[in-house]
Design a protein around this nucleic acid. Sequence first.
DNA 1: CTGAAAGCGCTTACAG
DNA 2: CTGAAAGCGCTTACAG
Lengths: 347, 347
Amino acid sequence: MEDKKMTIDDIARALGVSKTTVSRAMSGKGRIGEATRKKVLDYIAEHNYSPNVIAKGLAQSKTYNIGMVLPGDYHIAELPFFQKCMLGISREAAAAGYDVLVSMVTREDISQLERAVANRKTDGVILTRTMVDDAPVKLLKDSGVPFVAVGSTEDDAVVQIDNDHLNACKELTAGILAQGFRKIALIGGDMNLMVTGMRLRGFKTALADINGRAGGGGPDSPRPDTRPVKDDCIWLGVEDSGAVEKIIGQLLAAGTECIVCMDDYLCGLVLNALQQRQVAVPEQVKVASFYDSTLLADRMIPVTSIRFDVEELGRKACRQLLRMMDGEEVERRTLLGYEVCMRRSTE
Amino acid sequence: MEDKKMTIDDIARALGVSKTTVSRAMSGKGRIGEATRKKVLDYIAEHNYSPNVIAKGLAQSKTYNIGMVLPGDYHIAELPFFQKCMLGISREAAAAGYDVLVSMVTREDISQLERAVANRKTDGVILTRTMVDDAPVKLLKDSGVPFVAVGSTEDDAVVQIDNDHLNACKELTAGILAQGFRKIALIGGDMNLMVTGMRLRGFKTALADINGRAGGGGPDSPRPDTRPVKDDCIWLGVEDSGAVEKIIGQLLAAGTECIVCMDDYLCGLVLNALQQRQVAVPEQVKVASFYDSTLLADRMIPVTSIRFDVEELGRKACRQLLRMMDGEEVERRTLLGYEVCMRRSTE
DNA sequence: CTGAAAGCGCTTACAG
DNA sequence: CTGAAAGCGCTTACAG
């Protein structure tokens, strides 16, 4: 415990060198004799000294903290995502000598983030979720603090890094359509989440593609016959079992062959509703979901799903931020891959 | 944005006073003229200045950070708990001018916590979960940093604050037994979690009580006839649906009347298994759970459950820690209340 | 290769 | 009531 209060000055005195020398030995910056260097490092190791990062930071005008904005009111379906993402961020930060400061925000209250920014407690900030019309994004833009958003934003001046939800959803949908199904429905949650919109676009693109309109044909490309996406197959803003029950009733009556769910919680509700009506999956209806989280780990049938590497997403976001803090130019938008896992539920 | 770089020196110069005066006006410490004080405060408000907390901390040998240890590998059943607990901690910390630094630990790797401690980046630490033979507890004890554990610990020198799981489980169990049921089973998860043990003890106490052995009778109290708790009614370390299926089979064969689940995830598995076997709840079997989380929010029947105020638990833990950091004596063990919510599933 | 000194932005005895 | 100065524990030009 004694060593906890040891200072660079103590070391300098004990070794008969200057503080400058000790500092240089540790940082590796500046010229220093190999023998001196070793002497200092040995002493440090032996006495289990570690420098006061706060003081170091002050001298360098750095905090060695990165801020992480975490929603305090998110839905249980998102929890596994945040857990992994946090883990990735904190591991990468630790590897670079940084600690992670959390600011929990809700839709009504972003005061924790305001404090962290005003108090200059962080060298940069990572947003772990993006919303339509996102208050934290605005705050951070105004503050001038370097930040990256995990997720997509409307403002493309913002550095953002995201799973490729659009193409993931498109490929998943296309995969199902490729099996010959045409009556396909989409159920999604909170429309204020950017991710909901991205998936919706992926879904629509897949439908449009199979209808013969290969995406983004130029103005002079032939205008083929198209079957427009039917609105009654897309349900967004769905939150609870009551809503799901009702929707399932309508979908079954309409002869829906496959239901794509935007998250594993909704998918759980859908499976419950189907089970209660004695509708067999996949024999009578196919079901697919996103995230591949433990939320569905123990269902009777394995559910077709997208798999993302969320810890890696967190790590990449952190690395990106560290580069920005070093003044490097970084790409505005980074999209990470995904894996479509076809399973029993859509066979 | 200009004001972000403003320093106490700028203010002093602009106002023609000393830095000392500015500092005193802000902190309220030391004698200072009311007029001077107002002048300084007005200037600060107008120019939207906020002091550099890092520098302030250095001068006071404080960090204005509290550390929060978060398991990086916890189970989904625990996620709603951690979310609320974090929110409570961070809100209380913010109110006291502190930020929250997270260290994510896993069973194999507590290096993030080691770093935070070695680097003296926090003035105190909150542990958000306790395990049997808990590595973070040991590390923190050795380090000498003030800390409080949310949860119960074996080592009662540790300052701990917890929901009263023992009595909650006891009361829940007693409430069910009071309805006349005798064939009651308990299903629990990870036995390395202290909470599992606490609930187990509560369950056993309730059984013992109804068997006539009022808890803790002295050596000279009459030794009444006792029905010992049957071990085949208690299943711990249950993790997945496979295990649950098997257990449910045995319990039904044995004529079990009620199943108490230690968390909402397990309870979900139990409900699935019962549904699959067409066993009606509560008509044929009663079911009760803990936590009252959104994990079970959308089940067909409302599930009898314990309700804890986890955000308040987080807040109390944080307040306790702040008091310790001020050098105050605090009680070694604090237990918070609970609410037993009897619902349809045990009617 | 090494050191004395100034500085990071605050606080706080110590003197007026 | 107010200020000059030293100090928190580091880093980093600037000189040797």
